[in-house]
Design a protein around this nucleic acid. Sequence first.
DNA 1: CGATTGACCGCTA
DNA 2: TTAGCGGCCAATC
Length: 108
Amino acid sequence: MNEIEKSIWKLVLQIPRGRVSTYGDIASALGNIGYSRLVGKIMSTNPEPITVPCHRVVYSDGRVGWYLGLGHGSVTKIALLEKEGVDINEGRIVNFEKYRFKDFNLDA
DNA sequence: CGATTGACCGCTA
DNA sequence: TTAGCGGCCAATC
């Protein structure tokens, strides 16, 4: 577990209920959009899916994306998001506001 | 050490 | 609206 991973988990934990963020957004928060792929890769190795709400991380175009090993457009992920108040229609998130990370220190 | 691959993103056609 | 292409960084082969 390196610093970047820890930072990612922290950021994801900051996302409040009913709000979502994107892989690219998290990458940007880390200081480099290029980390987007890495973010996804690390999500796939999510050590604690219970404590880390990785279901609140979606694609930038509104598609839900993956959740655990359930694959793309996972109904479980969609169900969780809807349950938290996120509007989803036809597998797409409707009128979603990306959560804006703030007061985040890279060396934290 | 070079090539390939990923739960991605954004711009073009 | 969908498809294709290049670019990003790190891990793996």
